[in-house]
Computed example of a mutant assay.
Amino acid sequence: MQMEWPTYLDEYEKLVIRMTTPRVMIDNAGCVNATRVMIDSARKHGILLEAVQVLTDLNLSIKKAYISCDGRWFMDVFHVTDLNGNKLTDESVINYIEQSLGTFHFESSKCFDGLTALELTGTDRPGLLSEVFAVLADLQCNVVESKVWTHNGRIAPIGFCVLSLL
């Protein structure tokens, strides 16, 4: 199956995407009492939260998790079971994990020259986004684009492309 590329990507960007798309491996043999979900990826904001979100949305129990990093590459390993404490055996669940975490998500646009990218992570609460925009407005900043992702009371990286008007 041929991958459809957004028109704004040049050949170098396509190569980087192919090289840095996360690789997901599911291992039922390496651990006695859990299935290991291993995600090998380039450093990308939000990949750990995305993995935890996919696993918890499937009602899987994360028994143990660890992250290895050499500064540019991550290896996230999750020891998971179903709610009954069993290893994963349902092929549809395993395939869903592999497809959900082993794909590259295209950004709808980019921060172009002259714009500043800001990022905020933390605990979500009512009115937080309004407060962030109020501060940016007080600083006379023009928000060109923003992306918000919340899950289970947490804010994943929120990206703002900002043009300062000061």
Rank of each mutant, 00 (worst) to 15 (best):
G153Q: 04
V93N: 03
N86T: 12
E119K: 06
F112W: 07
V37C: 02
H151M: 02
L88A: 12
T7M: 09
H45K: 12
S92K: 13
D70S: 09
D76N: 11
F106A: 11
L118S: 03
I155F: 04
G159T: 10
D57E: 15
M75I: 12
Y12R: 13
T150F: 05
K147P: 00
D40T: 14
S164L: 03
L115V: 05
N59V: 05
P22I: 06
L139W: 08
A117F: 01
L129Q: 05
S100W: 00
Q2H: 08
W5T: 04
E145A: 04
Q99A: 05
F74R: 03
Y96F: 13
R125P: 04
V24E: 06
E11G: 04
L128S: 04
I155L: 13
L163R: 15
S164C: 04
S146F: 09
E131H: 02
S61M: 15
T56N: 15
T103R: 14
F104V: 07
G114C: 10
I17S: 05
G153N: 03
L166F: 02
V32P: 00
F74W: 08
M25C: 05
F106L: 10
G46F: 12
V52P: 00
F112N: 09
H79V: 00
I94N: 02
L58N: 09
C69D: 15
M38V: 10
G127I: 01
R125E: 09
F74N: 13
L9N: 11
S61L: 13
V135W: 02
G114R: 10
E98Q: 12
E119G: 12
L120A: 11
V52C: 11
D76G: 02
L15K: 13
N86L: 06
M75T: 15
L49Q: 06
R72E: 14
A34S: 15
K64M: 00
R72L: 08
G122K: 05
D90M: 07
V54Q: 08
E91N: 09
Y12W: 12
H151F: 12
F74S: 00
M25F: 14
S61R: 14
H45Q: 09
A137Y: 14
H45A: 12
D138L: 05
N59T: 07
H151Y: 13
T89L: 09
L88G: 01
Q140A: 09
I17G: 05
A156L: 07
G114E: 06
V32F: 01
L49Y: 07
D138P: 00
M3V: 14
F104A: 13
